[in-house]
Amino acid sequence: MLTGTDRVKRGMAEMQKGGVIMDVVNAEQAKIAEEAGAVAVMALERVPSDIRAAGGVARMADPRIVEEVMNAVSIPVMAKARIGHIVEARVLEAMGVDYIDESEVLTPADEEFHLNKKEYTVPFVCGCRDLGEAARRIGEGASMLRTKGEPGTGNIVEAVRHIRKVNAQVRKVVSMSEDELMTEAKNLGAPYEILLEIKRLGRLPVVNFAAGGVATPADAALMMQLGADGVFVGSGIFKSENPALFAKAIVEATTHYQDYKLIAELSKNLGTPMKGIEISSLAPAERMQDRGW
């Protein structure tokens, strides 16, 4: 009997496909998310837009909050550790969280090295903006990917940029001749073996969700249409006027992302979505996606 194998860790993410993972900060929100049909929740101390507003150093959530959420729901619970923070990750693993997000939403603990995620029994999800970054994270042992987007903005433009880029680069690798792959690996800064695997499979070897700016049912459906396997919604639900309605509508739009009449119906009377931020108004230091490499 083996625990923590690639199949078990990657398989867990496979089971989340077609679903929505929602950021929550307490038991009450976690129950709303579960009730709406979320496939998992991300337990946090603050949603990304509040982290942005609060400034300062953002760290792993208080374990009490993570525990409260774990006790409240039967769906999987994820939690965020700072990039490269070995101990935060080990603490979350020891608590039994189901997935760790090594996340740029928190202030990085290490500006040079990401975690060696192969060493853990718990699976990890990591952000990416292009195939080089995606392949480096897989090389370190990430079992699931998500676009970085620009967290806490309610603006989908960066997530669109990232998913298009990753998928275009995957298509390119798949269509390349094998003798061209080493040079492509060098150019992307990607592990050669991962590119070989992508070419063999015809796709990424792990599930890739969209994250960082999803605020409406149409945003979620857009990401699915662009090839995401599922969607993370951070601030988009609990910073909207009617979280329960938004949560349900986003879940349905993700399942039926090509049923436009349905999306029209379920987008009616939702109230105001979270207030968004224009990306160009962010100072370089405020851009979370540039954290990690």
């Binding site: 009997m1 083996l2 625990t3 923590g4 194998t5 199949r7 078990v8 398989g11 867990m12 999987p76 693993e93 039994g96 969280v97 189901d98 997935y99 029994t121 718990v122 699976p123």
Partner: peptide, 23 residues
Amino acid sequence: GRQVDSFEADLAIRNVATSFPAV
């Protein structure tokens, strides 16, 4: 248990296989 307890094991499945990789 939770995800950290998830595992792979070889199973004997009646009428199917004496050894089957089960995740």
